[in-house]
């Protein structure tokens, strides 16, 4: 019972903290670039503003366009609530293992792309085409890096994978390092961050994700943007879970929960600072360099797999 409560608290936290975290990244970036920034609360203010605004919709938008924000949002939130953030063994984590989690995100992307095509503007189609193409190229790398971890844990279930990492003695795992790098590269691409896409630009030559949601307004736009923020937090929580789960609560007593909550926030914030650093230090890639970037991620993940077999199983 208590773990169910923790589960709901955790999902709620993921939902509520996601805009704060997006604001945190933006602020970090601003500071790194000698600007003041709008503050961590700005995404929340934006959302509130959008929620209270009227929805303007193209005259021939179909029901796909109207339902897509809800599908995108619920699929992303569903995926997020499956990922353990504080407590290792949550009841909902049984719903979907890592592969099903990726599929839930694919569902949300599918509807996003369809919504992009629905209005029939050149921008929407462009965004949909690019998003689906790059997602397809990123998928093998993502899967391969998940494979590396689940090979040693003999599981794709998040709870078991975390338990495996928590219970095995500390050792250097080159394969995990490779998998982590590949995962970080894919996570940048999946979340539409620099160097793949720039979430703050509306320049037609460079945008991918923004091009798809260009026609949205009001609460629909708010849902879409909120979903994107939740996705960012979801990915960072996933990376934390898979690669550095130390400190997560194994049982539901209050002290370890509080400790796990604090550690989770710290770890995620650390990742976000790294993201801000990376985004400040890197330039956006040319569009047709992205495939090379993603195939690089795949090669690294495959190297992880090979070094797992060569160095860690062979002995």
């Amino acid at each position: 019972m208590r773990s169910a409560l923790v589960q709901f608290f955790q999902a709620g936290m993921l939902l509520l903290l996601a805009p704060l975290l997006a604001g945190f990244v933006a602020t970090c970036r601003a500071r790194l670039q000698n600007r003041r920034g709008a503050g961590v609360m700005q995404p929340w203010r934006n959302l509130r503003k959008l929620f209270s605004k009227e929805v303007v919709m193209a005259s021939h938008a179909s029901w796909i366009f109207r339902t897509a924000p809800y599908v995108v949002f619920t699929a992303t939130v569903m995926a997020a609530s499956v990922v353990p953030a504080m407590l290792v063994d949550t009841p909902l984590s049984l719903i979907a293992d890592v592969i099903a989690l990726v599929a839930l995100l694919a569902l949300s992307r599918f509807f996003q792309a369809l919504a992009g095509m629905d209005i029939g503007t050149a921008f929407g189609g462009m965004g949909a085409s690019r998003e689906m193409t790059f997602a397809a190229l990123g998928e093998p790398a993502m899967l391969m890096s998940i494979f590396v971890i689940s090979l040693s844990a003999h599981s794709t279930n998040l709870t078991s994978m975390i338990n495996h990492t928590l219970n095995s003695p500390f050792a250097l795992h080159p394969s995990l390092a490779f998998a982590l790098v590949a995962m970080l590269l894919v996570a940048l691409a999946e979340n539409g961050r620099i160097p793949i896409d720039n979430p703050t630009t509306h320049l037609e030559l460079t945008m991918i994700h923004e091009a798809m949601i260009l026609e949205y307004s009001g609460r629909h736009l708010a849902l879409m943007e909120w979903a994107a923020m939740v996705k960012l937090l979801l990915f960072s929580t996933l990376i934390v879970d898979l690669f550095m789960p130390w400190g997560m609560a194994v049982n539901t007593d209050a002290i370890s929960l509080v400790q796990a909550f604090g550690l989770w926030l710290l770890k995620v914030a650390g990742l976000m600072i790294a993201l801000a650093l990376a985004e400040t230090g890197m330039a956006k890639l040319r569009l047709f360099d992205v495939p090379e970037y993603l195939s690089g991620a795949f090669v690294i993940a495959f190297l992880g797999l090979l070094s797992f077999y060569m160095l860690e199983v062979g002995a």
Binding site: A171, L172, L306, S307, L311
Partner: peptide, 26 residues
Amino acid sequence: MSDTLVPQLVDGLAALMLLTSFALLA
């Protein structure tokens, strides 16, 4: 799996060696 630090370090260095070889190509 190795149980002391030195073999682990060598393994890690070997992995890095492989990485540099790939990086040279890339």
